[in-house]
Design a protein around this nucleic acid. Sequence first.
RNA 1: GCGCCCGUAGCUCAGUCGGAUAGAGCAGCCGCCUCCUAAGCGGCAGGUCACAGGUUCGAAUCCUGUCGGGCGCACCA
Length: 615
Amino acid sequence: MSDVKHALRTAFAAATKHLGIDPGEIPVQEVPAGKPGDYGTPLAFALAKALRKNPAEIAASIVAAFEPPEGVLRAEAVGPYINVFLDPGAFVAGIAAGAPDAEPRDRKVIVEHTSVNPNKEAHVGHLRNIVLGDAVARILRADGYQVEVQNYIDDTGRQAAESLFAAQYFAQTPPGEDASEKLDHWYGRLYVQLGEAKETDAEAIETGVRDTMHRLEAGELRREVERIVHAQLETFWSLGAEYDLLVWESDVVDSGFLARGLEVLEASPYVSKPTDGKYQGALVMDVAEFIPGLEESTVVLVRSDGNAVYVAKDIGYHYWKVGIFEGLAYAPFADQPTGSTLWTSHPAGEAHPVGQTFAHGQEIVNVIDVRQSHPQTLVRAALALSGTPEGQEASRNTKHLAYEVVTLEGQAMSGRKGVTLAIDHVLEEATRRAAAVVAEKNPDLEDAETVARQVGLGAMRFAMLKSEAKRIIDFRWDQALNLQGDSAPYVQYAHARAASILRAAGEAGVDATAADWATLGPLELTVAQQIARLPEVRAQAARELAPHLIAQYALDLATAWNAYYNHRGEDGKPDTPVLRAEPGLREARLALVAAVKRTLADALALLGIDAPEAM
RNA sequence: GCGCCCGUAGCUCAGUCGGAUAGAGCAGCCGCCUCCUAAGCGGCAGGUCACAGGUUCGAAUCCUGUCGGGCGCACCA
């Protein structure tokens, strides 16, 4: 909510007082193009019933009592709507001064994302998870939260075991650091081959995989899994994602989180160990009160053979995340591209390196695909059943950001069958395509390689973020790597244009200090109104965990700016030059351009997309 | 069978928690660089907002039902 909108709410409320009725929350919105005024409210509709008068009459009487706040010229009743006219100069001057950062919240959010099985290269299905999680983390941080990002490593699962056993089965030696094929790709290939070999040698393979799972649980293969994780991290980093902590499933189990979580749950009246019937010998939880409408509300936590199911581990992990118990130890794992240290849970680590706990999240965001909705609900139910006040609170504050799958040219992807598209390949191709366009459009560009990477990666990230998470994305090369239209390059180009003007202004020695704001008009105002929206859009995106709102906003602002840039007067000639404008007007427009550039860059940054100075 | 999600232009999607003539991009057609980057801009054409009821001054948006599509519901992970 911009300051002006806020001031208008107050002013409308005051102007409504004489009617003797509480209008409640007053909506203030941008006036549609073609209607008189700049901001307006449909407030009169809401009052019409109680006052038993027609809305237009009410609007007129509110207008009569309206005292314009600073920067607002006057109000006018447009039928039942009450619209106000802004002073363009004052408004743009306010925008040029910049928007304040969000208030720090002193509230910690743990965002869990990526969590790719450590047995193969990441593909475009994972790409959506990584980019979505990374964008949400950035947005929450910008909205004032303290954010920590965790990446869960399922190192005791079947998939890791299959890949590691495949090397043994095919008597292959994993490549070293300097090999031409990345280690994660290498294992991914063998993983698929093992799947094929199962058709003829199922029993031997099953025995080998089981044996490997035991070795994984015993920690014997940790070093090799770490090498795979390092290889995967190269991909994640190249996308611009970084993490605070890796949490290994084996460490979660070794730290006793599974056992302690079950202990907590056993005290709950909803958890029992039936001595007869279908669930004899198992530990089960009744979730009927938490998930209404289930035919079968009994969930098994520990099988009658004594083995815990997967969700039980996840429950233990979440009890730790929200601070019901402690116990992980940590060690540094890697230095990340921007210089931050990535930590990992580790059996031989220390409890509180640099005073960090990595737990005690007051809000939990789990970026996991929609097919995991059921187990996620079980985790939330288990938090509520913990019998602790933290658990109750945590259950409410744990959010599952459920995103839909990515299909490949209409086909479901399958890591098992090798029907995938590796992120590394897509990024390479995206950069190649961007480089070709750069070479064509701007052959003299310095740092063409860097720009090509920024544009190619930007296009990829934007393609994953511009629609709602619940929308299925069908990955198609020409759409995902689109460099025009509704895309990151469109926004980046708008930014580069603004940068270009500011660069030329700097060379000409023009700066914004001599601005004559009174020379500005409705064209500048329209752009400035778009700029003013970012803080409220950002707040909404944070509230709803919806990066697509930022992407759509960035497109809107770029469109408004491009339209302004290309605007022509009635004579058909450009009428919005900046540097060629009269002194005073020139400086005022320049200040607007600076605000456009800054805001475009800010919006892109929330999506993890770089804004090149030239392209 | 039960639960969740989706159905808006030929295609891919927005649609400001119920408001003003339903907006973009791609595809099609027509224009715009003696002017700060044409990866751009302007225009034309294209929609019974799946369907039927209901609530409301007002519904793409809320409620109910129907149809169509996707996903989930194991002592799997």
